[in-house]
Amino acid sequence: MAVLRRLLYSQKAAPYLFIAPFVITLLAFWLVPLARTFMLSTQEVVFGQAAFIGLDNYQRLWEDRLFWKAMFNSARYMVLTIALLIPIPLVLAAAINSKIGSERVKAVFKASMFVPALTSVVVAGVIFRLMFAESGTGLMNQIVGVFGLDPVRWLRIDTGGLIALLALAMWRWTGVNILYFLAGMQAIPEEYYEAATIDGAGKVQQFFHITLPNLKPTIVYVTTISIYGGLAMFLESFMLYRGNASPNDQGLTVIGYLYRRGIEQNDLGFASAVGVVLLVVIMTINLTFLTLSGTFKKESAR
């Protein structure tokens, strides 16, 4: 009892008790499983029997056409979501942050943009699958029809599927990114803009010379999460194509391929190699990006 009492009052012991759950989580659910993934990726696992085969899985991966297709699909999705989901929410956030227009409409707009983020990927996927239906009566084909075009078999063709995926991503995440940028904009001191106005800078100039530079930390953050979110995309495609198979594998992503090989086909060694490669790619891109954008420099200067 006395030991317990001492422990409860000790400022030396307390921190270890507080962070113990994290240390256990880190070990049991991250480090050990990750270490096993590295090990599995050098093994061939057949009926639970593992045999060491060195880098053979990586060799197979390198020569695997489907892996590169999945990699290409994921990279393309990442680049395009970043190209869409940063500039557009930025401009919309600037519109909300401007002093013109109806405040009530802006509040309704902000809340409405956020609503899609409340939907699960299952619900959102079902809705978009039905909107991009093949039949001429589907919503997207009705819209296309307004411009006098023939119905498109959206999910059967590569570009159509890509458009559906990007539309789904934009629908769900534009509102969230607006909130990020808005929070960043509201932290910029009003005096900067007043000074710029006195110097004769127009609204557009102010946006490029005051708003953008001051938003850099927010933009860096949103880009970072978009990089890994884009490269790790899987469920959106899984729901849109109603499963992990799509025509000509046009919707196959790296994680989709990992899922297929590891969980559907139980080829744990090969799937682990896919996971290791993706982890290395994501970490490399993120660390490179954060270094180039000077984030680390600022951290150490603080």
Binding site: F22, L26, F29, W30, V32, P33, L34, R36, T37, L40, T224, Y228, G229, L231, A232, F234, I255, L258, Y259, G262, I263, L268, A271, S272, G275, L278, L279, I282, M283, N286
Partner: peptide, 20 residues
């Protein structure tokens, strides 16, 4: 480690955790 975990998507951990 906390900051690093924030940057690792769950999708990468799904297979190791599934095996576990």
């Amino acid at each position: 480690a906390v900051l690093l975990l924030m940057a690792v998507p769950f999708e990468i951990m799904m297979l190791p955790l599934y095996v576990l």
